[in-house]
Design a protein around this nucleic acid. Structure first.
Lengths: 209, 209
DNA sequence: ATTTGTTTGTGAATAATTTATCATTATTAA
DNA sequence: TTAATAATGATAAATTATTCACAAACAAAT
């Protein structure tokens, strides 16, 4: 339905809103105005209103937004209906951390299985079956489009294999540069890169002596 | 020196370039042109050239860029000189995964110590001392500005404590919404949010039936 | 029921970012 | 040495994102 003309920048803020709204709900808040929410998420009120407006007229003038309604709509928009089957590639420390947190309560889908080359890591872990990498092509669930990458060797080769299997979205936890063809979306999650950006940004605030 | 008028968007691409350049160097490439690099990182050549130009005239007309020179400059720009002392808060699965990868070879600094409430996780892990959370205020290295957050309880309280200790940059691996005052930079790293964005973006490409 | 105060939603204006164009300069080959 | 080629770096144009400003809508009070 929606998801078409929504600006990319807005799309990246939706998860932020959802998290903040869920936190507010837990602390008993039932309604909120763009100005209040602004101080919670550090986003200008007018930007918030514009972002929300892409999903319809969610608020009431002179009143604000009902948090329950917002959460419901964001859940729907951000994936509750999708039920994506996500695979995890790599069951090392990082992979296990991700499996453990798989009980995400407002998520798009769930990790249905994992793959690893190391036999010691295979079997069932945190309720998720971990198969041998060799079995990727046969074990990958049909319709699976998204993979989480948490391996440290044969990275590019594995990515190519995944794309061959129909993967079109990758969340990348490796520390290597990965090359993907157009049409495949790569979301890189990297502490190092994050810290590099952070150092830059904080340097313009606090000048080190 | 630099780091002032560089657009935020450009700043976020620098780590991408550095990673790609290091990969190219390892595979023996010595020089590259913006057009070639473009096909590696999926960023327009003209954007690459403009991004690079903020750091000086790094290339030669009719020739391209020397990879060694680029890497050197990016290293300098992205932190090699900074030697940030980074602390890790939370030594669970995620924390351990991060400690294990602490041997980042082109990084801004390193994790000098960690903190956790659980006594079982305290002691030295992967060469990094893990202290009790209660000791945060006394153990935090002087001049420490950046913290990696990988805890799952008392999140907001801990963040407030960290900011009180002088932390101005946070890499956040929790699944909660975190509120920070202006002046503190928060980089949220969240599988769930990444997947949510991914689902949106891939949906505009592959229409599910 | 009417008025008053408040906050949304949006068209218009501004700012930021990306892409296109082109002059310039280095390289290479004749 | 000179001309041809090629790719940068700078500027201009186009695109995208944010902010302003205000009309319309609703709630609450009288």
């Amino acid at each position: 339905m929606t998801g078409k003309n929504v600006p990319k920048a807005t799309l990246q803020r939706y998860p932020v809103y959802l998290k903040a709204l869920r936190k507010l709900k837990r602390s008993g808040v039932e309604r909120i105005m763009s100005k209040e929410l602004s101080s919670v998420v550090n986003i200008e009120p007018t930007t918030i209103r514009r972002d929300f407006s892409f999903l319809g007229s969610l608020g009431k003038q002179g009143f604000g937004y009902e948090i329950d309604r917002l959460i419901e709509i964001f859940n729907a928009q951000l994936g509750m209906d999708f039920e994506e089957k996500i695979i995890l590639v790599g069951a090392g420390n990082m992979g296990r951390a991700l499996m453990k947190y798989n009980k995400w309560d407002y998520v798009v889908g769930e990790i249905v299985c994992a793959f690893d080359i190391n036999p010691d890591r295979q079997g069932v872990r945190f309720g998720i079956p971990v198969y041998d990498m060799d079995e990727l092509e046969e074990r990958i669930p049909s319709g699976c489009r998204i993979a989480i990458l948490a391996i440290s060797t044969n990275i590019q080769t594995t990515v190519d294999r995944l794309i061959h299997c129909g993967i079109v979205g990758l969340v990348d936890f490796t520390h290597e540069h990965i090359q993907v063809q157009k049409g495949v979306v790569l979301k890189t999650v990297d502490v190092v890169s994050s810290i590099q950006e952070l150092v830059f940004e904080t340097n313009s605030l606090t000048t080190k002596q």
